[in-house]
């Protein structure tokens, strides 16, 4: 089992956890003033665009803006590829 974590649960950030044994995308929206559905759409779209394997990801959204989601996603991609 390979588990990789990028990001944090701090305010304005996002925590992305890769688990190669997980088979379904998971998202926890920690910012209750934003609709879960909206957060899920934005996050999934951005991470999918980067080429990340969504089915192996669990994401904890803490209010990250798009540039942060992109940064965390790119770092995760690198680590998944073993760089």
């Amino acid at each position: 089992m390979k588990i990789i974590k990028v990001g944090s649960m701090q305010s304005n950030d996002i925590l992305i956890v890769f688990n190669d044994t997980q088979e379904k995308f998971g998202l926890e929206n920690m910012v209750k003033v934003i609709e879960d559905q909206l957060v899920s759409e934005v996050v999934k779209t951005l991470l999918d665009k980067l080429g990340l394997p969504l089915q192996h990801l669990k994401v904890y959204f803490c209010g990250a803006n798009e540039w942060v989601i992109k940064a965390r996603g790119l770092a995760m991609l690198d680590l998944i590829k073993g760089k």
Partner: peptide, 14 residues
Amino acid sequence: LHAARYLVKEALNE
């Protein structure tokens, strides 16, 4: 550090 590099890069652009 690895993730911070990407954060800085994207922040510079943002």
